[in-house]
Design a protein around this nucleic acid. Structure first.
Lengths: 136, 136
DNA sequence: TTAATATATGAATGCCCGTTCATATGTTAA
DNA sequence: TTAACATATGAACGGGCATTCATATATTAA
């Protein structure tokens, strides 16, 4: 079936063979000098961004952050409210502490955590709204 | 990120902030009625948010998106530029397609991808700047 | 037709990470 | 002191996921 126009192929507005790149067969991996574009985001930066996003990309961590956005809370109450194991909460708080998203104060046997970086609420809200839009 | 009053804040302030908690020993897991606070973010919403963030939380996907933010590109060129396996790029594009972050058009043997949801650039930029601040 | 190119896809491997369990540390009360 | 409570921590199990490899599909050229 050569040159068969009755293909299910998706048609695009250009019938004229004018292409945007790829005039020449690619020589991938061989010669980096013919790379069509320089990379816009460095690998290191991309890794730092993905790392940060990864820390946020956990339902339970988001729920913890949403609680702490209102007021400080102790580990046990977070566990009760969220229906999580206390150990799991503690582990997550350790993570959130490590990336400076929460801080804490000790009072007796309790440790009260609170949001340290309210900058996070910005993303939080943006994503929240985004999801409302795209799923409506 | 404009302050849109029509949009409800993710986290509502608490009506009454008397005692923080913990005057009484916790009875965790036993009786949910003594939970000190209701949860602010539903589990479903938290899961959707984490899912979305998880899709963004990959260095190579971010690099792909950053390329497509400027112009449409075909799979092979993305692979060359980013120094990735073409199969890996294709797999990632499949993912990005599934969540409607990119769209594509076919032209001959090539498939050109482009950003579909420019909303993402908002997060992208916000996180980019955030990291610059917190690490500077 | 056959060959080469471009992309897609399924299976398999290996890594990362969140949870649970057990245990340790620390704190308060009796 | 001992006992109960609150949190932290290390190990280990299990699931999810990004990559690679092999292969399939599609398109173009010879």
């Amino acid at each position: 079936m050569p040159d068969d126009p009755t293909k299910k192929a998706i048609v695009q507005p250009f019938e004229d063979g004018e292409d945007l790149c790829c005039d020449v067969p690619h020589s991938r991996g061989a010669d980096p000098t013919n790379a069509p574009q320089p990379e816009k985001l460095t690998v290191e930066k991309a890794q730092r961004m993905s790392e940060f996003l990864g820390f946020l990309a956990d339902a339970n961590r988001l729920r913890i952050l949403s609680m702490l956005a209102d007021q400080e809370m102790c580990v046990g109450d977070l566990a009760v409210t969220l229906g999580m194991n206390e150990s799991a909460v503690s582990h997550q708080l350790r993570t959130l502490r490590a990336i400076r998203l929460v801080s804490f104060r000790k009072q007796g046997r309790h440790v009260f955590y609170r949001l340290q970086d309210h900058h996070v609420l910005t993303f939080y809200q943006a994503i929240f709204e985004h999801l409302d839009e795209t799923t409506a």
